[in-house]
């Protein structure tokens, strides 16, 4: 798999390269994506905006290999997702996902929710617990490590979800409306966190949002409508 992640000549320096991406849902009537072409450079922070149903979440899900396209190709750091056999490994090691709804497990503490996404422990590396604690510190929630989701605010839960997305040091962070269900104060905290993350870790971030003020903090805003990109 390591070879598959090597950036080839055409895609050198690109984190995401999408060509002619089309997604038609099984009933054949909904064309969620219609020949989308997109490139995102490494370390870039990109926002994808547009009205509801324009295909921005579908695009993100295809980048995360949570769904398969009808046609077109998706290359992540030069590797063609359509040719990958182990997509679970890709999701585990290359990307981090943040959803609008945090999807934290209610029976686990913040620390355990971060730990659960971690791959097998390697000799010499910090233990899962230590690393999860470091990530919670990064999202400024070290004090809430032992709290369960029910004991956290909406913004705190989303920060735990971001820490979980960073569990395996992904090179690409995909965030689907991460501030969509938060109050304005929490929105600011989460946006500031994502900005800081990109600066500190150099992670490439693709964030879907319908909030223009959130999109404004990114390097580039991609507008979508009716399954197509209006500008890129």
């Amino acid at each position: 798999m390591a070879e598959a992640y090597q950036v080839d000549e055409r895609g050198a320096g690109l984190a995401v390269e999408v060509v002619g991406l089309t997604k038609v849902y099984s009933d054949g009537n909904v064309r969620a994506l219609d020949g989308v072409d997109l490139q995102v450079a490494e370390r870039e922070f990109v926002a994808v905006t547009g009205p509801s149903g324009c295909g921005k979440s579908t695009l993100l899900h295809l980048l995360a290999a949570l769904d398969t396209p009808t046609s077109g190709t998706v290359r992540i750091f030069g590797a063609d997702l359509g040719r990958m056999k182990n997509l679970a490994k890709y999701r585990r090691e290359e990307v981090g996902l943040v959803f609008q709804f945090h999807n934290l497990l209610p029976q686990l503490t913040s620390l355990e929710n971060v730990e659960i996404a971690m791959v097998r422990h390697e000799h010499g590396a910090p233990s899962h617990k230590e690393k999860a604690a470091q990530l919670l510190e990064l999202v400024e929630l070290a004090h809430a490590a032992d709290r369960k989701p029910a004991q956290l605010s909406g913004g705190e839960r989303q920060r735990v979800a971001i820490a979980r997305a960073l569990a395996n040091d992904p090179r690409l962070l995909l965030a689907d409306e991460p501030t969509g269900s938060l109050d304005s104060a929490s929105v600011k905290v989460v946006v500031a966190l994502l900005t800081r993350l990109r600066e500190q870790t150099g992670t490439t971030i693709v964030m879907v949002t319908h909030d223009d003020s959130v999109a404004a903090v990114t390097d580039r805003v991609i507008h979508m409508r009716d399954g197509r990109i209006l500008d890129a």
Binding site: A64, L66, A88, K89, Y90, R91, R92, E93, L97, F99, N103, L105, I116, A117, V119, R164, A165, A167, N168
Partner: peptide, 13 residues
């Protein structure tokens, strides 16, 4: 949803 989350963070089937 829990299993969807686990699959999305890279858990194998």
């Amino acid at each position: 949803r829990e299993f969807g989350m686990l699959l999305s963070v890279g858990w194998s089937r």
